Amino acid sequence: MGLPVMLIAAVLACAPVAIDGDTLRCGRERIRLIGIDAPELPGHCRRGRKCVPGDAQASKRSLQAALRGRATIRRFGFDRYGRTLASVAIGGNDLSCHQLRAGAAAYVARWDTGGTVRRECGR
């Protein structure tokens, strides 16, 4: 059968905004893209954690530039911060794949729920 009515309404009403290079906000919902890790914004890389190198602002701009059109969201659950773990595509363009192609994020196999990003992006 199709998507539940509430989910369809949320997708149609949502205009996603990039929070950083791997996280979106859709209304009140925070969405963490699966399978990737982007550079952290200043002050967000906790001591003792190995963070992805790179320009966090450029990564965020790359993700924001891809947010043109209706988002299709496949939800897989929640992370420890309460964010929705999801695969998000706009116009058939998977956003995790977009970030990987742009060099704005790194692939992380252990965060790739069901190998979704590996399949979608050819990793």
Rank of each mutant, 00 (worst) to 15 (best):
H44V: 02
L67K: 03
P4H: 02
L95F: 10
R46K: 11
G91E: 01
R30S: 13
G54R: 00
M1C: 03
F76C: 04
C97K: 13
I36C: 12
G48M: 04
F76N: 02
A58P: 00
A89T: 14
R123Q: 11
A56Y: 12
I8A: 08
Y107A: 10
A86W: 15
L41D: 00
R123P: 03
S96A: 14
A106S: 15
I73Y: 09
C14V: 10
C45M: 08
P53F: 02
A58H: 01
R74T: 07
Y107C: 13
A106F: 09
K50C: 02
G27C: 07
D22M: 14
A15W: 00
Y107R: 01
S96V: 11
L24F: 09
R74D: 05
R83N: 05
R80M: 00
D22E: 06
C14A: 08
G2W: 12
A13V: 08
A105L: 13
G43S: 04
A10C: 12
A109Q: 15
G91L: 01
I36S: 00
K50P: 14
T72V: 15
L33V: 14
L3R: 10
H98R: 12
H98Q: 14
G48N: 10
D55P: 01
V52H: 04
R28E: 15
R49E: 13
G103I: 01
A58G: 04
C51V: 14
